[in-house]
């Protein structure tokens, strides 16, 4: 057996999953979004599902909300993760334990974290009751709305909690492999601590930050479960809206759900493209 055949056979299972499940699903989703389902007699594709998506005001509100969730979560997580990595790369007593604690919630599922948020931050949650107990608020419903709130604070909190260690671990590994010599050079050439960070360390770790934050942005833009648990009813995040359409009793809403899913994927790809281009120029240019 030639090497090429061997490689082909070894890759086959992975390729099967990608081609059949991913591209297959995408193809079916695309067909349905165009109202094209020969099995049930729909043989004339049209754009009606897209038209109704783009003429629905809720879609735009949902898009803004979803963008706000993804952008804010990614930005806050990235900034805090870089800060954490800067601290964690120093040597200090107990660094091993701090490092362990920092990474601990990587193993906690998003869903579990979300339920924890619910218990802690809802108006009937632990913090509300504690605040009430200590006389800081008169009744628990005076506690600020941090979940089911219009600004998606609960959702963002949950994402930030979960994604800081994710980005942090990548950035920390990146910093450790780069070492501190470039920064030493910069300092001896007259750069202040801030200039050294801005003009030397940040551009050096930038590829790592970029790939980690793109992953976080794509995930938070397209994820369903957290906004479903912690989000307000209206406007809902785009994936929640799409799922609602998909499970609508009216089967005619399904192509709309598919169209929305396709739009979510395209929007997220376009935004990531511009983010990568813009930030590369800004940080390294």
């Amino acid at each position: 057996m030639s090497d090429r055949t061997k490689i082909f056979l070894l890759l086959l299972p992975a390729m099967f999953i990608i081609v059949v499940l991913f591209f297959g699903g995408l193809a079916i989703g695309l067909m349905r979004s165009f109202n094209y389902m020969p099995v049930i007699g729909l043989t004339e594709p049209d754009l009606s599902a897209y038209v109704s998506v783009f003429t629905d005001r809720e879609f735009y509100l949902s898009f803004l909300l979803t963008f706000h969730i993804a952008f804010t979560s990614t930005l806050i997580s990235s900034v805090l993760a870089i800060g954490a990595a800067l601290l964690l790369r120093r040597s200090f007593v107990g660094r091993g334990i701090v490092n362990f604690l920092f990474q601990l919630n990587l193993t906690v599922p998003h869903l579990v974290g979300a339920i924890g948020m619910l218990y802690l931050f809802s108006q009937s949650g632990t913090f509300a009751r504690l605040a009430n107990e200590f006389g800081m608020i008169e009744k628990t419903s005076d506690f600020p709305a941090l979940v089911f709130d219009p600004y998606a604070i609960g959702i963002i909190l949950q994402y930030v909690w979960k994604e800081i260690p994710f980005i942090g671990v990548i950035v920390l590994a990146n910093m450790q492999s780069i070492g501190e010599d470039y920064e030493s050079v910069a300092r001896s050439l007259g750069a202040s601590k801030w200039q050294t960070f801005r003009f030397v360390l940040l551009p050096l770790i930038f590829p790592g930050v970029l790939s980690a934050s793109v992953m976080v942005f794509a995930f938070t833009f397209g994820a369903y479960e957290i906004p479903a648990i912690l989000g307000a009813n209206f406007p809902a995040a785009l994936p929640v809206l799409a799922y609602r359409k998909y499970t609508d009793v009216d089967l005619a809403a399904r192509p709309e759900a598919m169209a929305m899913a396709i739009v979510i994927a395209l929007l997220s790809a376009v935004m990531i493209y511009f983010y990568v281009r813009y930030s590369r120029r800004r940080i390294r240019g």
């Binding site: 030493s184 050079v185 300092r187 001896s188 050439l189 007259g190 750069a191 202040s192």
Partner: peptide
């Protein structure tokens, strides 16, 4: 500070 010493390495 290193940047104020006038030493370059």
């Amino acid at each position: 500070k290193p940047e104020d010493r006038g030493v370059v390495m």
